[in-house]
Design a protein around this nucleic acid. Structure first.
Lengths: 146, 146
DNA sequence: TTTACTTAGTTGCATAAACAACTATATGCC
DNA sequence: GGCATATAGTTGTTTATGCAACTAAGTAAA
């Protein structure tokens, strides 16, 4: 067995995702304090649209690692909030492209500031070499299982 | 700013918890394949009871990093499945101690085997020094934010 | 002992997740 | 063209989460 050496007992917090839960909760709290009335999950969708507006729902599934029903409902809620709108693709009528509204675009700067601040709070006291290694491990884990 | 050096753009998967989501999904799939009919969240509660039977609901909140309503409902469902039972503490009647049933105890060995297998699948190709560093980083992140 | 405060647990509500089943559109092969 | 198959998205159901508001029980101080 290739990875039989490590102490498994200490690793189960990996599975329960305590660190990422803690980050998500802090981000949610920080967003609220800045009167940005979106959920962390909605943020994760908007984040990809800010980088690349007009992604399809399937693109958003891949980018956020969520299944199709989850994206359907997240986009539903983002539409209700007037942050995005669905536009049927002309070349392939199965596809909805998701575009930011003006209001959705306006949210980018402040929201990304809050996200950056949250990440800084999370990583206080962690040397950047170790951050790189941690990132690398999480990437391998993801690639192993996705 | 202490942690201004790292490239933030690559770190947002931290926040969205893609790696831990992937682990949880794989664990769920592996449990199902072994006909173990519990959710990953239920597993995370049982895991702590297997190590320490009779924990209070508040203990389970701390151990699993979930809030009180979440534990209330997880214990509700575990009781419906006849895996645990609540017992009111005699010394402090506010407290419910949560005890495994015989059936709950019987599930331990096979379930922990599945969990260990899942972790091995996740960590294929990751050298153990890097696992240790990753663990350390996630622990600091958790301590920074909890 | 009465009042205030704290702690343990529950309930209500909105959002999100996973999985299965479904519709609609596109593609590819005969 | 017509049929099988694949892809994009939606809907239904169950479970879980976060927050706020609540009840019950213990603690501590006037």
């Amino acid at each position: 067995m290739p990875n039989n050496q490590f102490k498994k007992g200490e690793l189960y917090s990996f599975m329960t995702g305590k660190a990422s839960t803690a980050i998500a909760r802090r981000l949610q709290k920080n967003l609220k304090q800045h009167n940005i009335e979106i959920t962390v999950e909605q943020w994760s969708v908007l984040y990809h649209l800010w980088k690349n507006d007009g992604l399809s729902q399937q693109d958003l599934c891949n980018a956020t690692f969520r299944d199709k029903p989850s994206i359907t409902r997240l986009v539903d809620n983002l539409e209700k909030l007037k942050l995005v709108k669905r536009v049927a693709s002309k070349s392939d009528r199965r596809i909805n492209q998701v575009f930011l509204t003006e209001y959705g675009k306006q949210l980018e700067d402040e929201t990304m500031n809050v996200a950056n601040t949250t990440l800084n709070e999370a990583l206080i006291g962690v040397p950047s070499e170790k951050i790189d290694i941690c990132k690398e491990v999480l990437q391998i884990v993801y690639d192993n299982l996705k």
